[in-house]
Write a protein that binds this DNA or RNA. Structure first.
Length: 880
RNA sequence: GGGCGCUUAGCUCAGCUGGUUCAGAGCAUCUGGUUUACACCCAGAGGGUCAGCGGUUCGAAUCCGUUAGCGCCCACCA
């Protein structure tokens, strides 16, 4: 069979993915095995795969595949999030391109459009995950708005309401004028913008007639001149002598000449602007608070869409930003505009629609967080829920200790409608269904004639996160009592997510877990970093700096991309994406492929004895493999997944390919002995299993080439090799052998001696650094014709040390004495200064008396080694 | 403004409870290579006052203090 010299992932990936799904390998049902569960952070149903998903889901797949191979009942639950604002915005957008305004539709009509949109786009991202190799149990795919998840959300709302945790109130909220909904604090991004500071004259009212200006005026500075129409006071600092004379006076709002009081409040910064602040309680959070303190009226001059309302009196119906420039002109004309300065300030933008947020008063539903937060805070602080890396604990604590009530209502249609039903008199009942609501209303009013028509359900829906915070419970239908699934799979094991949503999501899931299951929702949280571009910028659609993940998979193979993403991304660290990373991943896949090709190409003969060098190599690599497996286990325990990959990477590339295979490789067109061959395919099999979680496709492909497999057999269902004890000393000795071989290669290169030309080697054995039992390997790898142990130095040679053993290679051509001298002298100097530093310690009585015995002993060993080496070097120099 | 974290090779980062894992890895660089598995490769090499300063200690990349630079989170000045 001819096998291509380059691994071609395209040929294999789809084939194996289909094989895995057809055989139901991803499926999980509760059984007697230990469960290992991950719930996917549900991507937005509107989303397409980006590099962040690639990293995140690669890690989840590695964890789940490893667990599966370790014999656990691995269950990775996929799903999508309805993402109410983001999705609704997209649907509105699409309708608009079709000439339909949302306002012209009924709620039902709109929802039909939205569901249609979901059916068309909802599955895309999950299909893309399959290309990556994600081994999710697709039969469990959930959606935050499907029946089970929806009823869970409603149940929880009713329950929390009945517990007194949910209340309704007028609050200042972040209003998104484009989506026309409140958004949470976490969904507001503050950005620095180049804006202007407008200095405006407010004339002081005449004492006898507040509606008339006196001659005096004060100047206030504002970045938002359009909001003067909603001003209800001007405020100065009570300690500000400049404005003492204004106490108790009134001023006139420019243009509309409404008379407003001058008040005093410590909040005002005397240093900033003019020291005078205009107060617009309806449109600024601080002004709102001052307004409450001073009993000011609130004039809401904005409509929900960001245009000015009737209450503004001027520019009614025009957009706030259009008004800003218009009103500036008006103020200039009226003489109220003193000056305009350039100014940089921060403005809140909606994360969803990217339009400037308006602080706005409105009636919303809130969830009290304090009590819920308590157990969730403790769980993380005492490591019941472990964060990786742990430094996110601080951040978490800070937030949880200062947690604010959660505004859970959104003025949207796409989402879970708030299960609150109003009666004609404005009172309300809370119930899971219409029927229950009618019941409750009848009981409440004592009127048994009430029907559903007498009730009006709240128009708002719940915040998206009000469904995602239940995800680890709701995906197993955990709000239904007597449910085997939730009992078996919950709590889940690991959550892999981005630190950006630690509060949105992680914290709240932990709260919900304790509230509804009495325990944590997951044991470990692995925080991935943000994938950035080469210049360190966040990848974003608008910058266009994100590669298309599917294209990358096409070019480099899913295995290559997975390896590339992971290679330099320790937990919590941002990764800088470069194509060279996935290139490295692809190259590694190719290396594996070619190692396999080499092994596969050998003819096996059971008639020839195993060469000594092969016996040594097999024994060494068997131990090496165990050592590395122990290491890998340890790294996984610590969630150092990229380091675990690196360990396997070097194990395969350096140890297995460059050393082991080179040692056992038979001469050209010669067969290999059966014993070595069997050991080698055994090693390869182990290596493939270790690699499988990281590189599922190529390992499956090779595993099937390696031996005849039964139908329905798969590497992904085969057991992960378990580490056994190994000979540490053998490994150390072998490293010294490698060192000697490297020296010989270096000498060849320095002296321009081809590898084909065999050399002789003499060894003056010291305490350490030479082991004659390895000679067959030394001979083969060094291309030596003869190894001779000697008892004194050999003349006309180039020499080197490994530990205290000295090696000599005779040179046919004469030795360059000067060059050798220089080399030896440099080495001598190095050894002497080393000895000096060692002696400094050993001559220090306090070191000898206070350092542990072990440390002192190693220092003494260093001393002995160095002294022996110096002696030998001196002799060599003398000889030259 | 409040809080947290970072600074180790050209780049990206390991380095855990101070001492043989102590100055490391990968990539990049340089040199050599038609050794039939792989040039997506092989062999070899160079490269770092562990940000600066001070302290604790027999001993500091590691602990403490401090300065500088960078990053993140929270709150936000009109």
């Amino acid at each position: 069979m001819e096998i291509a010299s380059k691994y071609n992932p395209i040929d294999t990936e789809d084939k194996w993915y289909a094989y895995w799904t057809e055989n139901g390998f991803f499926k999980s049902v509760p059984d007697e095995r230990e469960p290992y569960t991950i719930v996917i952070p549900p991507p937005n149903v509107t989303g397409v795969l980006h590099m962040g998903h690639m990293l995140n889901n690669t890690i989840q797949d590695i964890l789940i595949r490893r667990a599966r191979m370790q014999g656990k009942n691995a269950c990775w639950v996929p799903g999508t999030d309805h993402a109410s604002i983001a999705t609704e915005a997209k649907v509105v957008e699409r309708l608009r391109t079709q000439g339909v305004e949302k306002s012209s539709l009924t709620r039902d009509m709109f929802m039909r459009h939205a569901w249609k949109w979901k059916e068309e786009h909802g599955g895309i991202i999950l299909e893309q995950l399959k290309k990556l190799g994600a081994s999710c149990d697709w039969s469990r795919t959930c959606f935050t708005m499907d029946n089970v998840r929806s009823s869970s959300v409603i149940k929880v709302f009713v329950d929390l309401f009945n517990k007194g945790c949910i209340y309704r109130g007028v609050r200042m909220v972040n209003w998104d004028p484009k989506a026309q909904t409140a958004v949470s604090d976490e969904e507001v991004n503050y950005k620095e913008v180049q804006s202007k500071l407008y200095y405006l004259k407010y004339y002081v009212s005449r004492d006898d007639n507040p509606a008339e200006p006196s001659g005096a005026y004060i100047v206030i500075a504002t970045t938002r001149p359009e909001t003067i129409l909603g001003d209800t006071a001007v405020c100065v600092n009570p300690n500000d002598d400049r404005f003492r004379h204004l106490a108790g006076k009134r001023v006139l709002v420019p243009l509309i000449n409404r008379s407003i009081p001058v008040i005093e409040d410590d909040y005002v910064d005397m240093e900033f602007g003019t020291g005078c602040l205009k107060i617009t309680p309806a449109h600024d959070i601080n002004d709102y608070e001052i307004g409450i303190r001073h009993n000011l009226e609130s004039i809401d001059i904005l409509n929900n869409d960001g245009t000015l309302s009737e209450k503004a009196a001027l520019f009614v119906g025009e957009d706030r930003f259009a008004v800003r420039s218009k009103i500036t002109e008006s103020l200039r004309e009226s003489g109220n505009l003193v000056k305009v300065e350039d100014y940089v300030n921060k403005v809140g933008f909606s994360e969803r629609t990217d339009v400037p947020i308006e602080p706005k008063l409105s009636m919303q539903w809130f969830l009290k967080m304090k009590e819920l937060a308590k157990p969730a805070l403790d769980a993380v602080m005492n490591d019941e829920v472990k964060f990786h890396p742990s430094n996110f604990k601080n951040l978490y604590r800070h937030w949880m200790e200062n947690v604010k009530d959660w505004c859970i209502s959104r003025q949207l249609w796409w989402g879970h409608r708030i299960p609150v039903y109003y009666l004609a008199d404005g009172s309300f009942v809370v119930a899971e269904t219409d029927a229950e609501a009618v019941n409750a209303a009848r009981i409440k009013t004592g009127n048994n004639e009430l029907t559903v028509a007498d009730l009006r359900q709240d128009e708002d829906v719940l915040d998206t996160w009000a469904s995602s915070w239940l995800w680890p419970v709701s995906v197993f239908d955990g709000f239904n009592p007597d449910n085997r699934e939730i009992d078996y799979y919950y709590p889940t094991n690991d959550l892999v997510t981005a630190p950006e949503i630690i509060f949105f999501w992680v914290a709240r899931m932990i709260m919900a877990g304790y509230e509804y299951r009495g325990t944590f929702p997951f044991r470990n949280v692995y925080f991935t970093g943000i994938v950035r571009d080469e210049q360190g910028r966040k990848m974003s659609k608008s910058l266009g700096n994100s590669p298309d993940p599917l294209l990358l998979i096409e070019q480099y193979g899913a295995d290559g991309v997975r390896v590339g993403m992971l290679l330099c991304s320790p937990a919590g660290n941002d990764i800088r994406y470069k194509d060279s990373l996935v290139e490295q991943g692809r190259n590694f896949a190719n290396k594996i492929w070619n190692a396999f090709r080499l092994v596969k190409s050998w003819k096996v003969s059971n008639d020839i004895p195993q060469p000594e060098s092969s016996t040594i190599a097999v024994n060494w690599f068997a131990n090496r493999l165990q050592h590395e497996m122990r290491q890998i286990d340890d790294l996984f325990d610590k969630y150092r997944i990229s380091e675990a990959l690196m360990a396997i990477y070097t194990l395969f590339w350096d140890e297995f390919s460059s050393w082991y295979l080179e040692i056992i490789k038979p001469a050209y067109q010669q067969p290999i002995d059966g014993k070595t061959y069997a050991a080698t395919t055994g090693f390869l099999d182990d290596l493939l299993r270790l690699l499988h979680p990281f590189m599922p496709f190529i390992t499956e492909e090779i595993w099937h080439h390696l031996a005849k497999r039964k139908a329905g057999e798969s590497i992904m269902m085969s057991p992960m090799p378990q580490p056994k004890p190994f000979d540490e000393q053998l490994l150390q000795q072998f490293e010294k052998l490698k060192e000697a071989i490297t020296f010989i290669r270096t000498i060849r290169k320095d002296k321009g001696i081809s590898f084909r030309e065999t050399l002789e080697l003499f060894v003056l054995k010291g305490d350490d650094g030479y082991n004659a039992t390895f000679n067959p390997v030394l001979e083969k790898m060094g291309a030596l014709s003869l190894i001779t142990e000697v008892s004194s130095k050999v003349e006309n040679t180039v020499s080197f040390f490994v530990k205290s053993s000295e090696y000599f290679i005779p040179m046919a051509s004469s030795i360059n004495v000067e060059e050798e001298m220089a080399k030896l002298n440099a080495e001598l100097q190095h050894a002497e200064s080393f000895l000096e530093s060692v002696m400094k310690k050993l001559n220090n009585e306090r070191f000898v008396s206070s350092a542990p015995e072990k440390v002192v002993a190693t220092e003494r060993q260093k001393q002995a080694d160095a002294e022996a080496k110096i002696k030998a070097l001196r002799e060599s120099i003398a000889k030259l």
